[in-house]
């Protein structure tokens, strides 16, 4: 159970976006496109449909995951689904943004996204109970069995997301 996409899976993703007729409502609804027009979901889809391959170029990480594109698509194309696939492929190629392996590392070591040891102290200030944490062993097991620890090692070997 790892993330490597099979050619069949890639084909089915491409098949799912084929109904796109380039109306552009995705781009006009995209907050990122509004401020950074070089990032254009309509073009991204066109490129994949035309070439038949998914080749992440880095711009996929600029997606804010606000889901407005998919909400408004008149053809029901799930751009969110496509983007998850593109980002997963990009991650496997070692191109995830720097902070991302750090987050995986934080979850692996604490179960949560919080690296500062004083954080429970901040909770005490408001008379809040320290949150119960999962055991490190079970979190590691889930991450190992789903391929995240291997992926993390890929980044740690490049000096990112390490201790």
């Amino acid at each position: 159970m790892t993330d490597t996409k099979t050619p069949e899976e890639i084909e089915s993703i491409i098949e799912s976006i084929r109904p796109c007729f380039q109306c552009g409502i995705c781009a006009s609804s995209c907050p990122v496109f509004r401020v950074a027009p070089e990032i254009n979901p309509r073009h991204a889809i066109d490129e994949i449909v035309k070439t038949g391959v998914i080749e992440p170029d880095g711009t996929e990480w600029s997606c804010a995951y606000c889901l407005m594109c998919e909400q408004r698509c008149p053809m029901g194309v799930s751009l969110a689904h496509l983007l998850v696939a593109v980002k997963n492929i990009s991650t496997e190629k070692g191109n995830a943004p720097e902070g991302l392996p750090e987050i995986i590392h934080s979850i692996l070591s604490t179960g949560v996204i919080a690296q500062d040891s004083d954080l429970d102290k901040m909770r005490e200030k408001y008379d809040l109970p320290p949150l119960k944490r999962p055991t490190a062993k079970e979190v590691r097991k889930v991450l190992e069995l789903t391929g995240a620890t291997d992926l993390l090692e890929l980044y740690q070997s490049k000096g990112v997301g390490s201790d």
């Binding site: 159970m1 993330d3 995830a96 987050i103």
Partner: peptide, 14 residues
């Protein structure tokens, strides 16, 4: 947006 982008399988399992 971070964990699912990293690994869809890990996101779903956690």
């Amino acid at each position: 947006n971070s964990v699912r982008s990293f690994s869809d399988e890990t996101w779903l399992a956690l």
